[in-house]
Amino acid sequence: MMGGLRGSITIGGLAAALKLMKYYYVQQQQAARAELTALKAQLHPHFLFNTLNNIYAHAQPTAPVAAELVLGLAGLLRYMLYSAQAPLVELAEEVGMLRAYLELEQTRYGNQLEMVVHTPADCQQLRIAPLLLLPFVENCFKHGTSTVLEHPWLSLDLRLVGTTLQLKVVNGTAGGHPVGASGGLGLATVRRRLALLYPGRHQLVTRAEEELYLVTLTLALDPPAALGLPAAAPRP
């Protein structure tokens, strides 16, 4: 009986050891795959930015406008790949990214595009979900100025009233071809994000008319104290 018991214990121990070895092997494989994925994620942007820098260096002497476009594109991509991965970003960064995007479009259209932009000089350390405002500006060019053959125009007014953000975007459209009420997939996505991230704290209105498209957004942002951030020092 004792011999049989020792044999069963040995077999059970061997089975347990094999199971543990298999578990350890699987964990090691998963860790290796995760590390490889992380390395690839670092490698691809590195290769991309190196390529853009090379294009910028080669284009600068002969095509300075194209070189500036490449430089601006690299800045936007860097923001989208790195800064925009956080749940919240500084409103000043988001506004800076919007202005950089508008500058790229202004360069592309040249003097043909009439553009009026107003943004707050002081964003009061406020934070916002990243890339939340960009679809409204992209929509201007995708469904608006790109369809206007003569005198394309847009107006962007971004203001702060306390910690409430007020955005108004108006752009011209081709007569007889107004933008749909939904504004396309981009605005449908941002509507969903607003509903999930700022429930009961926003109001979004879009209006399509014969020759213009209007978007107004009112968004209540968290004050810095609610996010555990130090209050800004008072100005002299």
Rank of each mutant, 00 (worst) to 15 (best):
K168S: 12
E114F: 04
V26L: 11
L194K: 01
A86T: 07
V190T: 15
S8E: 14
V190D: 02
A17F: 07
W153R: 04
H151L: 06
Q29V: 06
L165Q: 00
L204N: 02
P199M: 03
Q27N: 11
R108P: 11
V65H: 10
A188N: 13
F141Y: 13
V117M: 04
R192L: 14
Y82P: 00
K19C: 00
P130M: 12
L149C: 00
H177T: 02
L154G: 09
E93H: 07
A17E: 07
L43Q: 15
A74H: 02
T216S: 12
E94R: 01
H177V: 02
G172Y: 01
H58L: 09
G162L: 12
S8N: 10
A220R: 13
G180D: 13
V137F: 00
D157R: 10
L81Y: 12
L73C: 06
Q85F: 04
E150H: 13
G72E: 01
A232E: 15
Q125A: 13
Q85S: 11
P236A: 14
A59C: 06
F49M: 10
S155N: 14
M1L: 10
T10L: 15
L113M: 10
E35D: 14
P178R: 03
V116E: 14
A181T: 11
L197G: 01
R99C: 11
P234V: 05
L194M: 05
Q166A: 11
A208C: 11
E150C: 05
P236G: 15
D157I: 04
V95G: 04
Q28H: 03
M115T: 02
R78V: 11
L71M: 05
G228E: 07
R108K: 15
G228T: 06
A231N: 06
L102Y: 02
K22T: 11
N50I: 00
P61H: 08
V148K: 03
C140N: 00
T119I: 09
T145H: 02
A32C: 07
P236I: 09
A181V: 10
Q27A: 14
R159C: 05
A66W: 07
A59K: 04
A41G: 05
L131N: 03
